[in-house]
Simulated assay, not measured.
Amino acid sequence: MSIILIADSGSTKAEWCLINGKTKKSIETQGISPYFLTATQIQEIIEKELLPKMKKVQPDKIFFYGTGCSSAANKQQVAGALKKVFGKVSISVDHDLMAAARALCGKEKGIACILGTGSNSCYFNGRSIAKNSPGIGFILGDEGSGAYLGKKVVQYYMYNTFDPDLMDRFNAKFNTSPPEILDAVYRQPLPNRYLASFVPFLIENRGHYMIENIIEDAFNDFFFNHIYKYSESWKMPIHFVGSVAYGFKDILKEMCHMYELQLGQVIKRPMDGLVKFHRER
């Protein structure tokens, strides 16, 4: 029986699952995104954070699903790094949206949405991604994502929109300043991760009308700009995966009810669904 290594990588973290017969071993590393990392940096992450935990087990097949792996160039970059580490094994690199579709829909039709550090969506016809709303990155888009929500938190802070109570809570939690925030966003690496790090502030202060407005506005933007663009949205279940989706699933349920849409699964991570999918194949 083949030894399979499956990876599901976002910008912030990557989850790996090593399948050897009936046994599974889960390993976590930092996220691997070809948009922000070179092939050499990807190779270093795999060698330093993954290999030691695999304990010299050599996979026969590798299925890597990752953010940014939609273009041929980015797929080649990740595949090249994997080949340098693992040698001549069967390697398949695909977009994290395909991971979401396969984990959420299996072989059924449906709308698959990612709400994590970034956001994305597609109509999955049971075999392939038939339609995909354009992904234009966290600066121009990523509505409903952790980066998008975090940007709203930062805006409320820097524009002094938060009421005095929320401003005190923000300062107590983050102990930062406008110059530090501007430096982190415009000069430091991985600004999308940095912005997403403000999402826990929203979770901890649920119930405050300003917090609820930020969350609802962000998800409304996602529904309007993405889900509404698929004619299939009114015929198929709408599934969600990602830490943001899972953390705010009550809002997603309300949104689907309001828009007269059928809410499907809301899961935190796609790995269990991916393991099931590849074992059945």
Rank of each mutant, 00 (worst) to 15 (best):
Y157T: 12
L104R: 00
K88G: 05
N171C: 11
I181C: 13
N120L: 01
N132M: 15
P134I: 08
G126D: 10
N125F: 05
Y157V: 08
V185A: 07
G87N: 04
N160R: 14
N171A: 09
P179W: 11
A100W: 01
T176I: 12
K173R: 10
Y186D: 13
N125C: 03
Y159G: 08
G118Q: 03
L140P: 05
A147F: 10
C105T: 02
I111T: 03
I114T: 06
D168W: 05
S177R: 12
R127F: 08
K88C: 11
M167Y: 09
K107G: 01
D96Y: 01
I111S: 03
S177H: 09
G110P: 11
A184L: 03
N132K: 11
T161A: 14
L104C: 02
E108V: 00
S177D: 15
M167V: 07
F162R: 14
Y123D: 06
K88S: 10
E143T: 14
N175A: 13
C122I: 01
V154K: 02
I111W: 07
N175D: 10
F124W: 06
P164L: 10
P179S: 14
A103I: 00
D183Q: 15
Y186L: 14
D168Y: 06
L115V: 02
V154W: 05
N120I: 00
